[in-house]
Design a binder for these strands. Structure first.
Lengths: 236, 236
DNA sequence: CGGCAAATTTAGTGCCGACTAAATTCAGAT
DNA sequence: ATCTGAATTTAGTCGGCACTAAATTTGCCG
């Protein structure tokens, strides 16, 4: 159970992400995600295969072994706990937490991980709305429609925003389109035009690209009697 | 103003420490402190010299340049802020904060440094009692006698404990010999024998080695009238 | 089925920072 | 002034992880 290098951890995390989206990870996709050349990725894949963290057959892509997946989830847990901690305890702007967590995650001990999780009350989601794997490696990915797909004319709770692009994130933050915010889709311009949304009593014309990165759930509306409409239950 | 590697930062920090204690740093002392071979240290010293962070002439030891000192103090600031944060905000045991901070210090952005400093209210000392360099690189080292040197029969405030040995630290922690604690030196056995101290109403026989790592200041005693005795003033 | 473009891998290099072994320099004692 | 042991440096290696350039494999299309 030797400590992995930061580079290895980055690869495992990336492979996990690609597997989620596409079932398996190709050398090229991995290289693009990690901003390295494909040759470098090949190299590392062999190393990870020797460590039995991935199943790798040449020209055929990779998959995490269960040991590899376990490691990946640990790192993702570190990352997401850190993001939430930075946001919540230290009030770091949302668009900056990802990069910071990316560096810190590799230097986090189990001990500190536990302290942070405890300080946050064992949270289930990071500030972008991504689920945080449990200590024993459980992760419940749920699918939500993006603003681009959701029907107009009703209220939605923003449950997740993509953390891939800090500039986009900063923009969304300015508009108030962050997790936990409530948004109403007013209308939709045709031919790839913007989507009119209302949030915090302000109205914005949101482009397709941005809309694709905001994920929502029909909001729980509480009537005068305290009964609910439109969704079954609970958190997120 | 490119980012230094973690290894370079470690060397700068170590050189700074040795310079404090001895005026200048030798290759050997550096190697011992960093747990590398002397040949490795020589190597790195040349590299740091090329970057104008140290003045290095072969066989003659090193000194930090003012640029090097500035960097060293930044890193020490990171380290000590982290130690205090881990202790204060996350309640990490005192003997564990050093190692954790040693890893995290290299991954800390200026941004996060500022947030942490603000959250702690711009503190002046870390949990071992070491002064924290200011953002602009000021550091006030003050000398204090160790328990081994202090006169018996009076009360002392513990202002600092050495952070060099986690096991020793853990031991001191168990005894209650931590910064801010008040200790009374009862007596001193001759011929290198133990020192009898009282802390929190418990009495302990403290060996020479341990006593050398605990630094104290005569305590401010507040009389009924609120006047003071034995020391001039303020904090620490 | 053959041919070709894209994806991938192999081969070889460079930088970083550790190491060992061998050479060199320094400083203190005689 | 010289000798000698300790400290230091030099020379050469190695593992980690990136890179480029050159092979190789794949899969698809006609």
């Amino acid at each position: 159970m030797r400590r992995l290098t930061a580079a290895m951890e980055d690869y495992l995390k990336a492979i996990y992400k690609l597997q989620q989206q596409a079932g398996s990870a190709t050398t090229q996709a991995l290289a693009r995600l990690l901003k390295v050349k494909p040759a470098s990725a090949t190299n590392m894949l062999k190393k990870l295969a020797r460590l039995k963290l991935v199943r790798y057959s040449a020209y055929r892509g990779v998959q995490l072994t269960s040991a590899g997946e376990k490691m990946a989830l640990e790192i993702i847990r570190h990352h997401r706990l850190l993001e939430l901690y930075l946001r919540q305890a230290l009030k770091m702007p949302l668009h900056k937490v990802h990069e910071e967590a990316d560096r810190l995650e590799h230097a986090l001990s189990e001990e500190l991980e536990d302290l942070i999780a405890a300080a946050l009350g064992d949270p289930t989601h990071d500030p972008h709305g991504h689920p945080i794997p449990t200590k024993d490696g459980q992760l419940s990915e749920t699918h939500f429609p993006s603003l681009a797909e959701a029907p107009k004319g009703q209220k939605f709770l923003i449950v997740r925003v993509s953390d891939s692009n800090p500039d986009l994130l900063r923009y969304l933050e300015e508009l108030g389109l962050v997790p936990q915010a409530v948004v109403t889709i007013l209308s939709r311009e045709p031919f790839g035009g913007p989507i009119w949304v209302k949030v915090n009593d302000r109205t914005h014309a949101l482009g397709q690209e941005a809309a694709h990165h905001v994920f929502v759930r029909p909001v729980v509306e509480v009537t005068k009697r305290g009964t609910r409409r439109k969704t079954r239950s609970g958190r997120r």
